[in-house]
Design a binder for these strands. Sequence first.
RNA 1: GCGCCAGUGGCGGAAUGGUAGACGCGCUGGUCUUAGGAACCAGUGGGCAACCGUGGGGGUUCGAGUCCCUCCUGGCGCACCA
Length: 787
Amino acid sequence: MQKSYILEMFPYPSGNIHMGHVRNYVIGDICARYHKLKGDEVIHPMGWDAFGLPAENAAIQFNTHPKDWTLTNIESMKNQLKKLGLDLDWEKELATCKEDYYQYQQELFIDFYKAGLAYKKDALVNWDPEDQTVLANEQVIDGKGWRTGATVEKKVLSQWFFKITKYAEELLNALDELELWPEKVKTMQRNWIGKSVGAEIKFKIAGEDDQLNIFTTRPDTIYGATFIALSVNHRLVNKFLKNKEINEIKKLFSAVDNEKEKKGYLMNIKCKHPLLEKEIPVFIANFVLDNYGEGAIFGCPAHDERDYEFAVKYKIPIIKVIECDDNELPFTHDGIVINSPLLNGLKKTEAIHKIINYFKEKKIGNESINYKLRDWGVSRQRYWGCPIPVIYYEDGTFRVLDKSELPILLPYDVDLNGKGNALLNHDNWRKIVCPKTNKIAYRETDTLDTFVDSSWYYIRFLNNKLDRPFDTKQVNDYLPVDKYIGGIEHAILHLLYSRFFMKALRDIYNLKINEPFKQLFTQGMITHKTYKTKNDEWIMPREVYQKEGKLYRGKTNEIVIEGPSEKMSKSKKNVIEPDEILENYGINATRFFMISDSPPDRELEWTDEGIQGSKNLARRINEYFKKNRTDMKLDTNKMIEKFIFNIEKNIMNFSLNKCVADVYTLFNYLEKEKVYLHNSDESKKILICLYPIVPNMVSDLYMFLFNSKNIGNWPEINKELLVEKSINLPIQVQGKLVTTINTKKGYKEKEILKSIYKLDKIKNKIQNKEVIRVINVQDKIINIIIN
RNA sequence: GCGCCAGUGGCGGAAUGGUAGACGCGCUGGUCUUAGGAACCAGUGGGCAACCGUGGGGGUUCGAGUCCCUCCUGGCGCACCA
């Protein structure tokens, strides 16, 4: 039996589902139900991404406990999901905050550690002052925390990391084989991994026994290097400057108004140029990233915009080493190398090749590949997350626990006052006697980033009750997920982490699976018109009424200004509540509308007309089947076969909006021809095709018509009926449509031309001219070319 | 700035290089109604017409919304990545 693993991204249990969830899960449900009808062994589970900060914030705000708050939310959201008529296997349900999930994550952590994929180091990390926790690089957007929007600070802390960089090359290359992923997501991941090929060059420090390693993609411009710039966090800054001075420089840098304005501080050390008998100045500069390469660059102002700007400001010499006009500086394009004894006259790639070989020979450099991707910082200074199974002794050493010492459970009795990490403040939990050494020890109080939880939940779903993380055979048999459906906002974070996890687990446990998600489908947002008063107050759409072409607010009769359709958000008051819609329009209309007006990967604008149209469609179908049976017309069977064929094709391609069009086309035909099928076998076929989309309605109708709950299998298509025997053949002259004629398929070209030439419209076109060529695309089109 | 995607009626959107606008919404007219914002029926790209029409301009082709080049516009992502 063919397996089909259909998965939608599991939700965070905030307490209420929103329209975005509805769309996501209806799309997945249609797929899953279709595959079941086709006879596949379908896996379609649901769970809860249940650790995370909102629970802690809610605990403080409402004086409840994160666990209680979360579990209550799960219950109510589960009820809401059940109202959507989703065919989910609730036996497989999991919640990442439950010990039967996270204790196995602790096992994985131990295995990662043993495999060298988890390690601890002092690191300059992103600190979110509002959430009081560290964030991964991926979670910092424009210098702000992804969740809080607070400006992120830099701090040095001892942190746990996962070695995702070990897989940088594979994560990049394997994207090419993910044929069923959107190009857009792959591009985003490629950019994020950010591979650069170049060279690493050693710069000796004059008068010191120390050196710098500098990565560059342009070793061909080495003769134009006129300065060195270091990040303020570079090792050598610490070596040569006092803390006080460093702090002053940091202050100087952060005082810059415009973030892009370049600032530098001249150090009193110099570097030797690796090829020339000269020394060049060393700056500390605000524009040098400390987390790329070693946090040091050589500046070649003539051929780099940033270096040029800096050099002009600090009056650093600018030496041209690529042929160009002076007014073209900085010249960053390819060109012929000049002023470079070893490289003169060469083109860029030749020069790069030659100089790297020279560096190798002299042992002052090497070719080098650099990635933007950093290792994944997974420590979070929060209570509501998976505890890291590590203890610390009083001498500062630590021990990663054995699997036999698991689980490390979160204590329930914590003091959540919003200040700092509740685990750190919980002495009873924290302080233990190590059973191996009998020494006093302290538990790790950081918990794991919740993106760790979601990096392997699709594996745990295969057997959520197993007494180890997963079963190898099951993983090999049932992964990858065949269709993974969710929002594009996870393009980098969740999807990259999961890919890394799959590869890491593959290598640790000898799995045969390389990628977790075979096909990725990213559904579009749901948007809704926004409305404002003249005082910029957002108001709810339902408050607005229209009179003589103008919009007014219901209770005050103020003029209302209509804004663009935007993503539903509470702050803009353009939210539609699923519960309300289900109540007013019913589940069938709701499901129809979720796929009606736009292709699933594009935005769907919520409109009253749209949902009303879906309601009408549902009603029409219901009424249709209740009418008394009539005879079929000649082409009725053909229409039904076409319907089956099209629905199947369109579900497979995620062209669900076209499925709705297919439904209209069929019922328009049946009603126009007054063909009523009632409890016929043909009705069964039609209902089965409708079942994935509107299962509730179909179940009721099936009961009513056939007194049975047993919806059969997906109907076999009678291909013979699909073939059109007669066609409307378009006739072109000079490639332009002139007329069409109705004819049988398989006509003889000579014969049909005879009758075509008799047509007035064709005669008029041809008149006295000579036919020089006739293009007959058999059964498709005829094109007559005249002189 | 770089990358990706997209530009088709009043709107959402259909079209393996082969009849552009399927299907829906809206609109117009009609039927039934005390009434209708319900339901049903008919029509609906522009133009009186010949014809013209898929963001603009080139090209490939018998034939281009579709392929190629170029420009414009919009959306998304990345962005001092050396």
